[in-house]
């Protein structure tokens, strides 16, 4: 790939999705866009880029953006954000919402569904609905392709062996051929829809927890700040924001502050100190 081609595709992705592609990520272009080129019967990336340059083909454009913005996803990825949910956030929220018995969770980069389903499995094991709680989990992603997979809830043997304890597999999945399908009660606990984080958030209610992990890394500083500040408006005053292990709000916005002693967990600045005391 020539430097001019790289510059074009980097600029193109930035404009379409906000994705910032640094030169060290060039390998991602090869590994992710070669299959896209093949799908549209194009011989190589040069031909694919030429197609994008000539414009007019929305399907190709969409496929390129989706291929480049899709994350690898595991069940219970990084473990800690789920342990923190179970041990800290959930008990605190159940206490605070004991009256209305309603919780709303948003997974803002739901990808192929592993994160929202991991939360749904925790909630199922806690038997919240049996105790009269209504818990809504909303999963959004830029890519309709990954959301179709999430909705389908069908995972390869390889995917169900990364991060998912065997007891969870037995309890919450059914074998289908050589693959594993998440059971309907878990599947139905999550509602999916397509959303671009760069665009105004529409049709959302107030959330108690927002998971926004490993997606901000793709955006530049002003976009990160803008997304976080719009998320703050959708978060309950005593709600939690969960970021990826390599991400932070520090230096980006004062809308959130870290919850002390809980790595990767943030609260609205006004509430952060009282939530610390509640741990």
């Amino acid at each position: 790939m020539t430097p001019a081609e790289f510059d074009f595709i980097a600029q193109y992705l930035k404009q379409k999705s906000g994705l910032v592609l640094t030169p060290d990520k060039q390998y991602l272009l090869d590994s992710r866009l070669t299959p896209v080129a093949r799908r549209f019967n194009l011989p190589d990336l040069t031909a694919l880029i030429l197609k994008l340059r000539s414009g007019g083909d929305e399907t190709v454009s969409k496929a390129v953006v989706e291929a480049m913005t899709t994350n690898e996803s595991f069940f219970f990825r990084d473990k800690t954000p789920f342990e923190q949910f179970e041990r800290m956030m959930l008990p605190a929220l159940m206490k605070a919402r004991a009256g209305q018995k309603r919780l709303r969770i948003w997974c803002a980069a739901a990808s192929t569904g592993q994160e929202p389903y991991s939360l749904a499995m925790i909630l199922k094991d806690k038997a919240l609905s049996a105790q009269g709680w209504a818990v809504e989990i909303v999963g959004t992603d830029l890519s309709t392709e990954v959301l179709a997979r999430a909705t389908d809830g069908l995972y390869s043997q390889f995917e169900v062996q990364r991060g998912l304890p065997i007891q969870m597999l037995v309890k919450h999945f059914e074998k289908e051929g050589e693959q594993w399908r998440i059971k309907p009660d878990i599947r139905n606990a999550v509602k999916y829809r397509q959303a671009n984080l760069l665009e105004p958030f529409r049709g959302h209610l107030t959330y108690d927890v927002i998971y926004c992990r490993n997606v901000l890394i793709y955006f530049d500083q002003p976009a990160k700040k803008d997304i976080l500040e719009r998320m703050a408006k959708l978060l309950a005053h005593d709600g939690y924001l969960v970021l990826g292990a390599a991400e932070t709000v520090i230096g980006l916005t004062t809308a959130f502050a870290p919850v002390e002693g809980a790595r990767g967990i943030y609260a609205k600045t006004a509430a952060a100190s009282s939530l610390q005391a509640a741990i």
């Binding site: 595991f74 043997q157 390889f158 062996q161 990364r162 991060g163 304890p165 065997i166 597999l169």
Partner: peptide, 25 residues
């Protein structure tokens, strides 16, 4: 899988496996 757990297995890996799966388990 169920028989293994009942007999006292702590985890269960389905072949083929790789480093990532072994490490995760």
């Amino acid at each position: 899988i169920t028989a293994a757990i009942e007999a006292g297995a702590n985890e269960y890996i389905m072949k083929p496996f790789d480093k990532e799966i072994l490490e995760a388990k």
